[in-house]
Write a protein that binds this DNA or RNA. Sequence first.
RNA 1: GCGGGUGUAGCUCAGUGGUAGAGCGUCACGUUGCCAACGUGACUGUCGUCGGUUCGAAUCCGAUCACCCGCUCCA
Length: 512
Amino acid sequence: MTPNDYHVSMDSLASLCKRRGFIFQTSEIYGGINGFWDYGPLGVELKRNIKESWWKSVVQTRENVVGLDSSIIMHPRVWEASGHIGNFKDPMVDCRETKARYRADQILVFKHKSDETLMFAYPEDEEPPAKKARRFNKTDPADYESVPLLDIPLENYDRLVAPNTKEAGTLTEPRAFNLMFKTFVGPVEESSNVAYLRPETAQGIFAQFGNVNATARQKVPFGIAQIGKAFRNEINPRNYTFRSREFEQMELEFFIKPGTDAEWHEYWVSERLNWYSRVGLPEGRMHRDIHEGDALAHYASACTDILYDFPFGTQELEGIAARGNFDLTQHQETAGKGLEYFDEETKERYLPHVIEPSAGVDRIALALLCEAYRVEWIPKGKDNDGKILTADPKAKQAPEGYEARTVLRFAPCIAPYKVAVFPLLKNKPELVAKAREVFEKLNERWTCFYDQTGAIGRRYRRQDEIGTPLGVTIDFDTLEDSTVTVRDRDTMEQTRMSISELENYIAERVKF
RNA sequence: GCGGGUGUAGCUCAGUGGUAGAGCGUCACGUUGCCAACGUGACUGUCGUCGGUUCGAAUCCGAUCACCCGCUCCA
């Protein structure tokens, strides 16, 4: 599969997604809410196919991976153990003067050791503002020290000069932005009832590790997989559905023997890249971002992000982290319950390490839409050798002898509809009856679409725009010899075959 | 969160103080023997929302919400 060389604008894509029923703004009739999206009839099929192929690839075809569906609201101490309550908030400070906002933990303060004069805040990745200190306080910068902003008492903020300002006292106090959605369990809103919508599905797996281990009859290495909604109160959702506040994750926690982390990590990176290629994201558009040094969480020994070249930039679809046994250790300590695994072979007792491939369903859906969407110039009549060209996005019109079509070239295995069935003409009852018969048969096995409205060419194009890979047309020959034409979305070519061959042919074409 | 832009039919957009429009799409009927044909007809809007100014507001003003772009942020 070659990368799509048509660069769709997000506006055009959003327009098609709305027009055809892939994605709507949530509660649109009330004006919508920033960061929340609904999937329409086609979008829900697309997502279902993504999730099903992931499940098949990660769970069903592997004897040593089992599934789990944990609840969205869990005991609040789960998030204490995971570090989300402690760390899942970034204290931020705003500058009233420049309107800039900073992460408080990334700001240092350059202050005189006497701590009685003006202090100067600066970002940690910049040089201390020595000149500013000399100019404002008329003192030698050598007598200054740099301390974290969070160590500065609030009452001293009136002596604090913010970056790029000349006056002190423009910074607000650090405010925690907890990115977890908070709610209350039970009808009474009091602090003892506080609970959180999960910000990731992973912790449900760790919290149930003991039960799954006790019941699933698995031996390390083995995995627990989960697909489900997660919620993060993002400060600034952006880029269509890419960063949403409610989203769906597909996560695997693959538990391994300590010391085998590197090889299993590499194994899963490669397995996952292989999967992306099979659902229609070509190698040329996919990248690995290997985290090193500071970018790596303190407990992780490796983390590789899988990125896709979106029209708005190269962005993460999935992170594959080697998390050691950080999470199990945390839960074991916080809950005070033993979660160790007993290895019968070596008679060892240990907390398994874990490899965590964590993917975003909505981001993958968006990537697949971006990759599938293109406008093509197709030759009219028999001219131009029948060669289909990729349209120039800037061109207003197709060149002479060509006409434009919009097509979603989904990999057949993830296309919302697999097959469209058409009677050649709708005013011939015998064609309609035969087409209905074929449709109802195919519809038992695949999501199919029946359409008898309009000219046949128009119906083909309508299916192109929603990415249906195959069109089956019932014509007068069908009534004679039980053959139909099967029209290919990508080549627009037609193949004649008998109805008896149809199911095997489709099965072969749309298989994952 | 800041700055800029945008918001009118399902989509793309015109309409700048005086009766809400076009193209496309959708639906129905007719026609149609394989790639967006044609004819006839139909549906669709509190002009994003709320408030103000005005005899009168899609149009002017304010607020608010949403989307886009640039910052910022993204454990």
